[in-house]
Structures are given as structure tokens and as C-alpha cells.
Design a protein around this nucleic acid. Structure first.
Lengths: 205, 205
DNA sequence: ACCTGAACACCGTTCAAGT
DNA sequence: ACCTGAACACCGTTCAAGT
């Protein structure tokens, strides 16, 4: 890659990060090119599709999520690992508003620039689910696709301004549906509570 | 309303129903006017905003849903009533792809043409939730807004082509998180159910 | 190799002019 | 009263022309 091209690429990505953070995944590509002081064709040269741009923006977060999932596979209780992954996924998707719809579309479209990362992430979640199921800690009538769907729905929820304030709490509610022993498990990381008790979010985020 | 205006209104609505069914809530208004053989200004005259058009399209379904919620308040078990409402809501939102995001935005925007209907629907769901909670059948750490949020998330899920096949099943999963007696209840809506409710006082409505 | 920006085919929204 | 469609300010995408 030529030096001037590299410079354009990097700058474009930085500007895109700012604009997409502000306007969401549907941000105007023209606006990004304009703000980057670059021709529209240059943006398209580096990122042939919107999803290619999103992929570049999300790569870091996705890689971190996958790495964390790997750690979770062998650490802590299966329930905590599963719920932690769920929270991490939702937090990651929440980085850019509206990105979760692209992810769900990408999983069904092998041509999408986001396809591979999403399949990888779903696989990571699936492994944590299977482990929890094997130990009798998670209901067995759902599979990795279901888990991914629920994670996506919770991320979508966090994107809606009117619902976002309760998004964290509702992750706990859905987690309690996935886990088998609601009564005795400590979903939130605090002391054990009854079934009707509030399932609290992590403090360390 | 003048006769020619009435005719335009009705025809516009019929065409809009077809186009929105096919293309979703983001369908091109220009396209609708074009297909209705009507000037673009005519569409704007009858439906000043996209939400006004959606409201007209959804009114029937919303009214039916509200009526059914009223019936459910006094019939069957509190759990069945709540889960039935949840399924009805998801089915109703599923009428037009992408409409659930408009609904969630409308609940926070009193100016929206969809605001009133959404508030009414949320209130209907809330009453069913409170009844179930009063009889000890639903967890008490969620409120009507949470129920509405979960219902919206499930409807969103049904809008994603890659997730839709499991949407019905996942309604059951989330329902089991809301209901207290997971083990014995039949979330799907059939015969077997948990122990009959004991002496319980009604929540005020 | 890489960049530019005009060109094309679309939008949503408004509003002067017509009937 | 009501309807029309041009006008305006935007899009995404492509591609000939430049360096």
C-alpha cells in the first residue's frame, strides 16, 4: 500500500469512527468523505461497501470479545461465563448505534464483510452455552443461534433511547431465562437471592 | 372531507398498505404516491409525517390488540393472559417490517402520531403484568416499560430474516423469564399449568 | 496506483401555481 | 378545498479523467 493511500485509509477510519459514533451505522458516507477531506471515490476504494467500513471499525472490539470468550471458557462457573459473554456482546454491539442489525444480516450473507467475524462470535457464545448445558446450568431447548438472537435483541434494546435505561437490567432477566437454576445462581455477581429479586449488573464495566 | 379527497385518502392508504407490507416501514413515500397515481403533495396533505401514515395503517391492528387485552384481563389464568398478550403484540408488530422501532421512538415522543396508541398498548400490557404479579405468577422486578421493551425486542427479532424462524420459540423463552413458576407452567399456551392461585388481593387498576 | 468529483438515479420535504 | 409537480437539499454508487 502506497504511503499516501495508507494515510488516507487511516484518516478515513478515524473520521468514520467519530461520525458513526455520533450518527450510527447509517451515517452518510458522503459526509465521512467530506469531513475526511477526501474524494468520495477514495472512500469507496478503501471500503467498497458500508459493511467493509463497519467491519474495520468493529474489528478491534470483535477480536477482544472473541479473546475474552476464550478466557471465559476455562474460567469461573459456566453460568457466570455465559452471562459475562452476553454482557460483553451487548456492550460491544452498543459501541455504534444500529450496528446489530448489520450483524444479524451479515450472519445470513456469506458475502458480507462482517460475515466471518459474526460467525466467529456466535461460535464463541455457542461454546459457552454448550458448556453450561453440559453441566446442567442452562436450558437445553436453545442453541447457539438462539443465544445469538437473544443477545442481538438485547443489544437492539439498548439502541432505543426510550428503552436503554433498562437494558442492563433486562440482560439479567433474559439471562435468568437461559440459566436453569434461577433461585440459587448468582447472575449478577452478588449474594444469592430469590427468583423475584433484582438481577444486578456488574459493577466492573 | 370532499369526495375526491376521501377517494384519494382511501386509495393512498390501500397502496401504502401494499408497499409497506413489501418494503417495510422505511418504504419510499414518493413510490407510494407514484403507485397511487397521486401527486406527492397529496400524500403529504393526508399524512403530514411518515408516522401519521403508519398510524393509519396500524390503527386497526392496535385497536384489536387493545380489545383482546381487555378480554384477557378477566379470562383465563394471569400467566396465560400475559403470554397471550405478548404473542399478540409480537404478531401485530410483525405486520409491517421495521415498525417496532417507530413504536419505541413514539413512546418517548409525545408529538408522534403513534404516541397515543403505543401508550395505550403499553398500559394494557402493564395491567396484565400487574395482575400476574399480584397473584405471584410474575417476577416483581420488572414493570410495564420493561415488558414493553422485551415485547419490542422480540418483535425486532422476528423482523430479522436470519432470526425469524426461532422468534416464536424465543417468545416462550422470554415468557418463562417473566413468569415465576417456570417448571410447571406451559408457556406455549396449552393445557397443563401450575397450581391454582390462592387467595390473593387484586392490584388496583 | 491512487485520487477526484461530476454524473446518474434516487430520496424527503416544501410550496407556488393551478382547478 | 384540494391537487400537482417543480425546486431544493440531500443520498449511494459509478467511472472517466487526472496525477
Amino acid at each position: 500500500m502506497r504511503a499516501d493511500a495508507r494515510k488516507n485509509y487511516d484518516h478515513l477510519l478515524a473520521v468514520a469512527r467519530a461520525v458513526v459514533t455520533e450518527q450510527g451505522a447509517d451515517a452518510s458516507l458522503r459526509d465521512i468523505a467530506r469531513k475526511a477531506g477526501v474524494g468520495l471515490g477514495t472512500l469507496y476504494r478503501h471500503f467498497p461497501t458500508r459493511e467493509a467500513l463497519l467491519e474495520a471499525l468493529l474489528r478491534t472490539g470483535f477480536d477482544e470479545l472473541t479473546a475474552r470468550a476464550g478466557d471465559l471458557e476455562t474460567s469461573g462457573s459456566p453460568e457466570d461465563a455465559l452471562v459475562s459473554w452476553l454482557r460483553d456482546f451487548v456492550a460491544c454491539a452498543h459501541t455504534y448505534r444500529g450496528v446489530v442489525a448489520s450483524m444479524m444480516a451479515a450472519i445470513a450473507d456469506a458475502q458480507s464483510a462482517l460475515h466471518a467475524s459474526c460467525v466467529t462470535m456466535r461460535a464463541a457464545g455457542t461454546r459457552l452455552l454448550i458448556r453450561a448445558q453440559a453441566e446442567g446450568m442452562a436450558r437445553t431447548d436453545i442453541d447457539g443461534t438462539d443465544l445469538f438472537a437473544l443477545a442481538g435483541a438485547l443489544a437492539w434494546l439498548g439502541d432505543q433511547p426510550s428503552l436503554a435505561p433498562r437494558a442492563d437490567h433486562l440482560v439479567g432477566v433474559v439471562a435468568s431465562a437461559i440459566l436453569t437454576d434461577r433461585a440459587s445462581s448468582d447472575v449478577g455477581g452478588n449474594a444469592a437471592r430469590g427468583p423475584a429479586a433484582d438481577v444486578v449488573e456488574h459493577a466492573d464495566r
